Computed example of a mutant assay.
Amino acid sequence: MILVSAGRRLLWQEWDGHYLVFQPSSAETHVFNETTALILRCLEEGPLSIAEARAWTEVALDAAPGELGADEFDFATRRLEELGLIEYLDETVASQ
């Protein structure tokens, strides 16, 4: 599976350890913790495999490899998908 940004322009503001993200396409404002915000930020550069996105997020959090729990990462990515901010793609579809 590949994670990709849903390609929407977002406006970011960090406030007291929380990230406020305004999504103009839906006129919604979202509040994310650092982990969720970093996952979303890493996908702004382009599609990544789930393993690559998780590793990138761990580095950005200054965490040891494997320290970011799969449950926390999966919850954050599923929530971002529900909000329409990222998409899961099959690797064969993404490469076409």
Rank of each mutant, 00 (worst) to 15 (best):
P65C: 00
F75N: 09
L85P: 03
E91P: 10
E82H: 13
R54D: 00
G46A: 06
W15T: 05
W12C: 05
E58Q: 01
T29M: 08
E91C: 07
G7A: 07
Y19R: 08
R41G: 07
E81H: 12
L48F: 00
L89M: 15
W12I: 12
A6L: 09
T29Y: 12
V93G: 09
I2F: 15
A27I: 13
A60D: 04
W56A: 15
E52Q: 12
S49L: 06
G84W: 13
A37Y: 01
E28Q: 13
S49G: 06
D62A: 06
A53T: 02
V21C: 04
L61N: 02
T35S: 03
E45W: 14
Q13D: 11
F22Y: 12
V93I: 14
G17K: 05
R8P: 07
C42F: 04
L80I: 10
T57M: 00
V4C: 10
W15D: 06
L85W: 06
D16R: 14
G17V: 06
Y88S: 13
T29P: 04
S5R: 03
S49D: 06
E82V: 12
Y19P: 02
S26T: 15
L80Y: 06
D74A: 13
E81D: 11
L85D: 03
D71N: 14
E45H: 15
L85I: 12
D74Q: 09
W15C: 08
E82Q: 14
P24H: 08
Y88P: 03
V4R: 05
P65S: 02
R41V: 13
E52W: 01
P47N: 05
R41C: 11
A64V: 07
S49N: 10
E87N: 15
W12H: 12
L40C: 10
A94V: 09
T92W: 14
E81A: 12
A60N: 04
L10A: 07
V21M: 04
T36E: 05
L85V: 11
Q23S: 08
D71M: 13
I2D: 02
F22D: 04
R9H: 13
R54H: 00
E91F: 15
S25T: 11
W12M: 04
A60M: 06
D71A: 06
N33Q: 08
E14P: 04
A53K: 00
V4S: 07
Q23G: 05
G46L: 02
I86T: 03
S5Y: 04
V59S: 02
Y88T: 14
L48V: 00
Q96S: 07
L10W: 09
L80D: 02
E87M: 12
E45A: 14
T36Q: 05
R79K: 10
N33W: 11
L43K: 01
A55H: 01
H18E: 11
L80T: 03
L11I: 14
N33S: 11
E44A: 08
F22E: 04
W56I: 13
L80R: 02
A6E: 06
V59R: 01
L89S: 13
T29Q: 07
Y19G: 03
R41K: 11
L40S: 03
T77P: 05
L43T: 01
E52Y: 01
H30N: 08
E87D: 15
N33L: 05
E81F: 09
N33P: 13
